[in-house]
């Protein structure tokens, strides 16, 4: 593998990179949705809700 190379088409490597790309999109959308769903509840839990603060 030493020496300069021009990238050649390799379906297995493309699948490898595709899996990472797919995971990135899923995590972006998934964690974004989770943040909206449970974010406020988690914030209250960690920081303490208004009632706790008083």
């Amino acid at each position: 593998m030493a020496g300069l190379e021009i990238p050649t088409w390799d379906p297995e490597t493309a699948l490898l990179i595709g899996v990472i790309l797919f995971e990135a999109f899923v995590l972006y959308a998934g964690y974004g949705g989770l943040e909206r769903l449970v974010g406020p509840y988690l914030m209250d839990l960690v920081v303490g809700g208004d009632a706790d603060a008083r």
């Binding site: 990238p7 050649t8 490597t13």
Partner: peptide, 8 residues
């Protein structure tokens, strides 16, 4: 690109 090259 780097990952692809290393992946190969």
């Amino acid at each position: 690109i780097g990952s692809y090259l290393y992946g190969q």
